[in-house]
Design a protein around this nucleic acid. Structure first.
Lengths: 175, 175
DNA sequence: ACGGACATGTAACACGTTACATGATTAA
DNA sequence: TTAATCATGTAACGTGTTACATGTCCGT
């Protein structure tokens, strides 16, 4: 899924400026994508050239003016066609944490323990952000929110179980 | 986590050829990384130049010879230093499925249903692969295996719940 | 005879990030 | 006055994928 399609999708849910599109991915969906301005602005420019979105400049007081983009009927059609052209491909989890854990045999137990503890905090916080985000919108957002929460819960549960069993083993060794 | 570190880590768990490294990511860990030959071979060449791994050519009968790489003490040290230099960064889930679902409002219900059904099958299969993979190795593999299974279970559970509630709603509408 | 597994490698390409460039307003 | 937020945009760079190039052996 390229940034262009992502922007088009966001605009299908409501008009926004490039800056605002970025902001939408700083909240509950930051674990999915965090596109940079360097990719968003060129994408919006191209979408405009291709007639997928239209752009209006909004002047603001005490703020720089912003370019608000709206999806056009052609853009909506193109988005549908692209998304429905094939079932979505497999998910890929880019996790330095899991890779690190995969090689845990050659790392120090203290480091591993710190990494697990940090990751529990990470997923607890993500879960909390998702929960607090309340039904702030459409069915799609609700689905993704629920999915994220389910996965966060499962991750924390697993990590805590592993950590407890590690601590038990240490207590046993110490005794 | 770049391919170079990934290769080094794999070699820390045992010697392998470039082709074999690729194979290791076709099994239970294919949801994490699926590095291409075009990235593995140059990475191994560079690791060799840098003295991180050593390379021996194994001639085989009825098969092309292969270059088997082994991690060197320097490589093991470098790997530890790199991994322990900082706690792993946040996980990122690249999921065309979730992005599609996020925009489900403008897509056909049939397509959404098909996508969910397919994804349930996907995670059921991944869960099965992880389960069948048995304690085939070190503690790290076991951890990642367990983590993957927990997440798969949670995903399938959530998806099935959503699908059931959608079907209920349809039954209600039809009645 | 043809496709697939084994096996390695290079070159072109796509894509996104980081850094740079600019500039106003506001809170500490 | 220093940093942060708002706001847009370009250029250089890094990293990985796809396609290409080559060759054997095996099953059908």
């Amino acid at each position: 899924m390229n940034i262009s399609t992502l922007c088009l999708g966001i605009l299908a849910l409501g008009e926004a400026s490039g800056y605002e599109i970025r902001k939408r991915f700083e909240g509950p969906f930051r674990h999915m994508h965090e596109p940079s301005f360097g990719s968003i602005y060129p994408a919006l420019a191209k979408l405009t050239r291709d007639g997928m979105v239209s752009c209006t400049v909004h002047s603001q007081e005490k703020r720089p003016s912003k370019k608000v983009y709206s999806i056009t009927p052609a853009g909506r059609l193109a988005l549908r066609q692209e998304l429905e052209s094939a079932l979505p491909g497999p998910d890929r989890i880019r996790s330095d944490f899991l890779v690190t854990m995969l090689f845990s045999d050659i790392l120090s137990p203290d480091f591993i323990d710190a990494a697990v503890t940090e990751r529990i905090a990470f997923y607890n916080e993500l879960g909390a952000v998702l929960q607090s985000n309340e039904c702030g919108g459409n069915a799609g957002r609700e689905f993704v929110r629920g999915y994220g929460m389910a996965v966060c819960r499962a991750a924390v549960e697993y990590l805590e179980t592993v950590q407890r069993s590690t601590q038990d083993r240490e207590t046993l060794t110490a005794a």
